[in-house]
Write a protein that binds this DNA or RNA. Structure first.
Lengths: 229, 229
DNA sequence: CGAACCCTTGACTCCGCTCAACCACGGTGG
DNA sequence: CCACCGTGGTTGAGCGGAGTCAAGGGTTCG
């Protein structure tokens, strides 16, 4: 693994405070690989062999059942995913695939569990990471169960706007069908919902969005840290 | 706190392996209280002061937004809830209220965090508990997003059946309106869905359920450990 | 240039919600 | 003892949101 990559991973909250020897132990058996788009990194149901750390690109976490599919989250650098399955040595509950060309570090689950049992600082960091992930899914579930599709879309646009430094215009971060699936609707419906939001100052051209009336959107989505962080 | 209660709490996976002195430290500042039904134990948004351990009864975890409400889980003895908020010292994302007369032990969050930083075995247990909770919410979200209401209901009945030792008849564990909310539908709709399932061998009398054709239900719900544990 | 693929649009269907009435049950108080 | 009322559950009618199916346009890429 390149030392620049190591630095980057090392600087993550998850690894920042652990003993240097333990970090070396973790990364010794690790791979760091580049993947083209649309590669399946993880398929749900398989045993959790590796903790994944995305260092570049974007990865979709999704789930399948009975021929249907829904995206649960989109992970961006630099962060980890499917830590819970690794720690519990349990089968993955979600699949993962690259959305764009991406680089991912793979840390063997056995090493992870071994170091985790010996390094208190690392254990603490894992707890924080897990607690954060947990709260993320809770927010997602609340979002799905409490808001209707128009409200979810408005909330999503607000969140994206803030991710881009509250700039009034910005680009959608990935394909609309992914956004639709993440928001729990069909692509057709997302299209219609976007059109419907034109009355609220939202204009769309391809992937670029313009929010003319931020407050109006807020009145629809009523964003708050209990659901939108 | 009564010593029998202490024993019970101590035997939980979360506390089983920690140092005796640390366990004493945790429970020293703890309360153990009885509550009547319909008491709000936690209201979302408040800072997370206490880890809750339910030792008797049943507690509903739910969330509100804009006048709507949805139940996220029902917690039964003996287990803990809202660990994530406590560990992160963050506001609760969910509210909690007793469904029936219940006993709950309250462990101060400051003590929890303090011991957690010093006791590696405890930190490990917390990680396992958190990872388990995380996977629980992921399952819930998948359930909501991938199955329609009839399928969710069938899966719920199957799960309840197995909780009762696969007995063919059993009682619904709590009010139907709670079940409806948990399954992401209205009470009216639950009623209709139950009636609809009569063709599949489900008969309902008040709170008692009879499943004449388990396999038929399975064909609808397609249960699996990736969504129904 | 053709072939995918994504997005959009329209028409239609249907699942699930709303609103309203009604019933069963249990508790209360006259 | 019974009238009254509140609550939870059921049922029905009507509506609307969201999915499905099908077609067409725009882009990208081989």
């Amino acid at each position: 693994m390149r030392s620049a990559d190591l630095e980057e991973i090392r600087s993550l909250p998850l690894f920042r405070d652990m003993a240097p020897a333990h970090f070396a132990e973790l990364t010794r058996g690790a791979y760091h690989q580049s993947f083209p788009p649309q590669v399946d990194l993880i398929v749900e149901g398989r045993p959790a062999d590796f903790l994944h750390v995305i260092t570049d690109g974007a990865v979709e976490l999704f789930a399948r059942w009975n021929g249907r599919e829904t995206t649960m989250a989109v992970v961006r650098p630099v962060s980890t995913f499917i830590l819970a399955a690794c720690i519990n040595d349990a089968p993955y509950l979600m699949s993962a695939r690259t959305l764009v060309p991406s680089r991912v570090a793979l840390i063997p689950g056995t090493d992870l569990r071994s170091v985790f049992a010996r390094d208190p600082a690392f254990a603490q960091a894992i707890v924080r990471e897990l607690a954060g992930s947990y709260r993320g899914v809770v927010r997602h579930a609340k979002n799905i169960k409490l808001r209707n599709s128009k409200e979810r879309l408005a909330a999503f646009l607000i969140a994206e706007c803030e991710r881009n430094g509250r700039s009034r215009t910005f680009a959608l971060p990935y394909e609309k069908r992914i956004i639709a699936s993440y928001l729990g609707m069909t692509p057709e419906n997302l299209s219609r919902a976007l059109k419907q939001l034109r009355e609220d100052g939202v204009t769309i051209d391809g992937a670029t969005v313009d929010l003319a009336d931020f407050d109006r959107l807020c009145a629809i989505a009523l964003p708050g840290r209990l659901m939108d962080r």
